[in-house]
Lab assay of single mutants.
Amino acid sequence: MLYRITVRNADGEKLEIVVEMSEDEVRALAEELRKAGYEVRVEPIPEGEEP
């Protein structure tokens, strides 16, 4: 499935990426980023919607 991941650092800089991963993989990635001090938001992209 496609997911949009938005990551912000302490300075407020934002990075937005689209990935194709399983829900478990995305959850693990988000958890690791949060542990590293980043603010993370994950949104699933519905099938048929443009990323």
Rank of each mutant, 00 (worst) to 15 (best):
A10Q: 09
M21P: 00
S22D: 06
L29N: 01
V18K: 08
S22I: 15
G37D: 02
R4N: 04
E13H: 14
E43Q: 12
R27F: 08
L33G: 01
Y38N: 13
V18R: 11
P46H: 14
E31P: 00
A10V: 04
E43I: 13
A28T: 09
M1T: 11
I17P: 00
A36L: 04
L29K: 14
N9K: 15
V42N: 00
L15K: 15
M21T: 07
Y38R: 04
I5H: 00
R4P: 00
R4A: 03
E50M: 10
E25Y: 05
D24V: 10
V40A: 03
N9R: 14
V42I: 13
R4S: 04
R4H: 07
V40Q: 00
E23K: 10
E49H: 09
I5L: 08
L2R: 14
V40M: 01
R34L: 08
I5T: 00
T6Y: 14
L33C: 01
V40S: 01
P46I: 12
A28E: 05
E50P: 12
E32A: 05
R41K: 09
G12H: 10
G12C: 15
A30V: 07
E39Y: 09
I5N: 00
V26R: 01
R4M: 08
A30G: 04
E25G: 11
E39N: 15
E50D: 11
R27I: 11
N9F: 14
E50C: 03
V19D: 01
L15A: 07
E39W: 06
V7M: 13
V42T: 04
L33H: 02
Y38V: 06
T6A: 03
Y38H: 13
E13W: 14
E32V: 07
E31Q: 09
E39G: 04
V18P: 01
T6V: 11
K14W: 07
P46A: 14
S22P: 14
G37F: 13
A10Y: 05
N9Q: 09
M1E: 05
E25I: 03
G12E: 02
M21A: 13
E39D: 08
E43D: 12
A36C: 08
L15C: 03
I45Y: 09
K35M: 10
Y38K: 12
P51S: 13
E47A: 12
A36M: 09
D11Y: 07
D11F: 13
K14N: 06
L33R: 01
R34W: 08
A36Y: 04
P44F: 11
I17C: 02
R41V: 11
P46R: 09
E49Y: 12
D24H: 14
T6K: 06
S22T: 14
G37R: 02
E13V: 15
P44S: 10
R4D: 01
G12I: 07
R41G: 11
L29P: 00
A36P: 14
D24Y: 11
G12M: 07
G37A: 02
V40P: 02
G48A: 10
E25A: 14
A10I: 06
L29Q: 03
I5Q: 00
V18L: 13
A30N: 01
D11S: 15
P44Q: 12
E39H: 11
L33K: 02
E23P: 08
E13Y: 15
E50A: 12
M21E: 01
K35E: 02
P44V: 12
E50V: 08
R41H: 13
A10N: 15
I45E: 10
E31Y: 04
K14A: 06
E49D: 08
E32H: 03
V42P: 00
I5S: 00
T6M: 13
N9W: 08
I17A: 03
Y3W: 04
L2D: 02
Y38G: 01
E49F: 10
E32C: 08
G37K: 02
G12S: 04
V7I: 14
P44G: 11
E49K: 03
A10D: 03
A36H: 06
E25M: 06
E20D: 08
E23Y: 07
K14M: 09
V7R: 03
V42Y: 05
I5K: 00
R8D: 02
E20Q: 10
G37S: 03
M1F: 09
E39A: 07
A28G: 07
E50F: 07
E16W: 08
L2W: 09
E16A: 09
L33T: 01
D24W: 08
K14G: 04
I45K: 09
Y3L: 02
D24S: 13
N9S: 11
L33I: 05
V19Q: 07
V7S: 11
E25T: 06
E43A: 10
K14E: 12
R41Y: 07
G12L: 04
R41L: 10
A30L: 13
R27Y: 07
G12P: 01
Y38F: 14
E49T: 13
A28V: 09
L2N: 10
M1A: 12
E39I: 13
S22W: 13
L15P: 02
R34I: 05
E13K: 15
E50Q: 11
V18A: 04
V18S: 12
V7A: 15
I17F: 09
L15I: 04
V26A: 14
R41P: 00
L29E: 01
R41N: 05
P51W: 01
T6C: 01
E43M: 05
A28P: 02
I5G: 00
R8W: 11
E31F: 06
E32Q: 12
D24F: 12
E39F: 04
A28R: 11
K35F: 05
R34G: 07
Y38Q: 05
K14L: 12
L2Y: 11
S22E: 05
V42E: 01
D11L: 15
A10F: 04
E47C: 06
E50T: 10
A28L: 12
P44H: 08
R27G: 11
E20K: 06
T6R: 04
R8C: 07
D11R: 11
E39S: 10
E32S: 15
P51M: 04
Y3C: 00
S22Q: 05
L15G: 08
M21R: 04
A36K: 14
V19I: 04
Y3Q: 01
I17Y: 08
M1H: 07
I5R: 00
A36E: 05
K35H: 04
D24Q: 09
M21C: 02
E47M: 15
V19K: 13
Y38T: 02
I5V: 13
M1L: 15
R34A: 06
P44R: 09
E23W: 10
K14Q: 11
V19S: 04
I17T: 10
E49V: 10
E25C: 02
I45A: 04
R34H: 12
P44N: 09
V18C: 05
P44D: 04
N9L: 05
P46S: 13
R4I: 06
V42Q: 01
M21I: 05
V19P: 00
N9P: 07
A28N: 09
E32F: 07
E13F: 14
P46T: 14
E47D: 15
E31V: 09
E20T: 08
R34F: 07
P51G: 10
R34K: 10
L15N: 15
E16I: 08
E47F: 11
E39P: 02
P44I: 10
Y3A: 01
Y3H: 04
M1Y: 08
L29T: 06
V26M: 12
M1N: 14
V18I: 06
E25R: 04
